[in-house]
């Protein structure tokens, strides 16, 4: 384990902004993609319910 303590870990040898900047954006985008996808899935299912309602109310 090459970190003194948590504060040392987060300082990341002075490059905290760059390292955490990249990691935060990367995993933030991945999570955002999943959230958008689930929303799209909900919209698609709602559309089906809507058209089913229209077909045989």
């Amino acid at each position: 384990m090459n970190w003194g303590g948590w504060s040392d870990f987060f300082a990341m040898g002075g490059y905290a902004f760059y390292v955490w900047g990249s990691y935060a954006v990367t995993f933030g985008l991945l999570v955002m993609e999943i959230v958008l996808l689930l929303r799209r899935r909900r919209k698609a299912r709602a559309q089906l319910v809507l058209s089913r309602g229209r077909r045989n109310p």
């Binding site: 990341m12 040898g13 002075g14 390292v19 990691y23």
Partner: peptide, 8 residues
């Protein structure tokens, strides 16, 4: 050479 920044 690059310190911690290379972890990206």
């Amino acid at each position: 050479q690059q310190g911690e920044a290379y972890r990206i």
